[in-house]
Design a protein around this nucleic acid. Structure first.
Length: 413
DNA sequence: GGCCGTTAA
DNA sequence: TAGTTTAACGGCC
């Protein structure tokens, strides 16, 4: 589902003029509390809060200390990572607007201007902009959406159609960067440096042209961000959404200015939990705050996390598009209505084994580590895995080995 | 090595 | 009535 901001209560966001935020949040809170999913979430929230308070106490002790040597260590890290700064490329992130919903509107004009979502009563992949005015969001259960907006039309997704449209836009992308990298059906990164230079066009014009071609050939709108690297281009794609584009100059000072007041949550890779931890422990809200407090980030987080946050705060990211990756795992999963019947576990497992075997066969792959994921009625999940003595891929092997793993857990409490 | 949690689309 | 699916990676024990 190609959408942003899923599963979160509404904050202050453009396009929410008509919404009674207080009312919306009240309805959502009630629905949340009355579902098992919401109850688990509340429990996890409480655990996170506790962890944050513990970390906060550590931070407060740290503040009393002389961190001069840490400061010089961090400065050294910054100088080192500055060598990675590449301002020579024009990287573009293209993202279709409310993708699935827009395709459905295009093909059924009676849906236009009406609140609509794509998905089912369990989950909405996408909501159109009219539905968003009611507080409906992508990634929200469809029955939540109905509570917020009783007249919402919920349309079943039609993936063949979305894939076909995706083919069309990818054909367009290839004309501008044969090496482009598709992140999902509706989103891609392109390096338009060569195209802009050889056609003597500004990157802005190139991107406008790409978006015009998308509009012309699919009757759908896209938004885009242009910047020196993927990290920044991705954020820029949101700035003038929908149906807009934004370019951030390939200039270090401009980049730091742009980041100064940008909430860390906007950065790809900083999710809800990380943002909460940064906020609650170190009072970090924006990327500027992050830069100012790198010394503490260095003290409080792992080396890997510190490096990640340091690069964010400096706006340093990868400008490489063609990172051809090889698959490391393949999985199939299904959620079914809660039951204790072992026979129904076996039935689902057989189905899953068949599907996985088929997909493994398609890609001519085998696996040696087998994991079984269990989900309970409470939504608590757990995993059991086993490294096999040989590589497997047949539906029979998948079923019998995973059934052995399953049987060891029965009865599940 | 095994498992959990986070993130993203 | 009803809260997904897939892939990757970090952290902890």
């Amino acid at each position: 589902c190609p959408e942003e901001n899923r599963n979160e209560l509404i904050t202050h966001k453009a396009g929410f003029d008509g919404v009674d935020q207080v009312k919306v949040n009240k309805i959502l809170k009630k629905l949340e509390e009355s579902s098992r999913f919401g109850q688990l979430k509340a429990k996890k929230d409480a655990e996170l809060q506790e962890k944050i308070e513990e970390q906060r106490r550590i931070f407060e002790r740290l503040q009393a200390q002389d961190l001069t040597f840490v400061k010089s260590r961090v400065e050294h890290c910054i100088n080192k990572v500055e060598e990675d700064r590449d301002l020579s490329k024009y990287i573009v992130c293209v993202d279709m607007d409310a993708y699935y919903a827009s395709v459905e509107e295009r093909d059924d004009p009676t849906l236009v201007d009406k609140p609509m979502g794509v998905g089912d009563s369990a989950m909405l992949c996408t909501a159109n902009y009219t539905a968003r005015k009611f507080g409906v969001r992508s990634g929200m259960p469809g029955y939540f959406a109905r509570a917020l907006c009783p007249h919402i039309k919920i349309v079943k997704p039609n993936f063949e159609k979305y894939t076909a449209v995706s083919q069309q836009i990818r054909t367009i992308f290839a004309r501008y960067d044969p090496n482009f990298s598709a992140m999902s059906l509706d989103e891609a990164f392109l390096d338009v440096t060569n195209y802009a230079q050889s056609h003597n066009q500004s990157p802005d014009d190139v991107v406008q042209q790409i978006r015009d071609e998308i509009r012309g050939e699919t009757k759908l709108t896209a938004s885009a961000g242009i910047a020196a690297n993927k990290l920044l281009a991705k954020v820029c794609a949101e700035v003038n959404k929908p149906n807009g584009q934004f370019r951030l100059d390939n200039n270090k000072d401009k980049i730091l200015d742009f980041l100064r007041d940008l909430p860390v949550r906007k950065i790809c890779g900083v999710g809800k939990v990380s943002a909460k931890i940064l906020n609650g422990v170190l009072d970090i809200h924006t990327c500027g705050d992050l830069l100012d407090k790198l010394v503490y980030v260095n003290m409080m987080f792992s080396e890997i996390s510190f490096n990640f946050y340091m690069r964010i705060s400096l706006g340093i990211g990868s400008s490489a598009i063609n990172t051809n990756h090889t698959r490391k795992s393949m999985s199939t999963s299904r959620t079914f209505t809660p039951t204790n019947k072992v026979s129904s576990f076996y039935k689902t497992l057989r189905y899953i084994a068949e599907e996985l075997a088929r997909r493994l066969d398609q890609e001519n792959m085998e696996g040696k580590t087998l994991s079984v994921v269990f989900k309970k009625q409470s939504f608590v999940q757990f995993t059991r895995q086993k490294i096999l003595t040989r590589y497997i891929s047949s539906r029979h092997d998948l079923y019998s080995y995973s059934r052995a793993i399953l049987d060891k857990e029965i009865p599940i409490s």
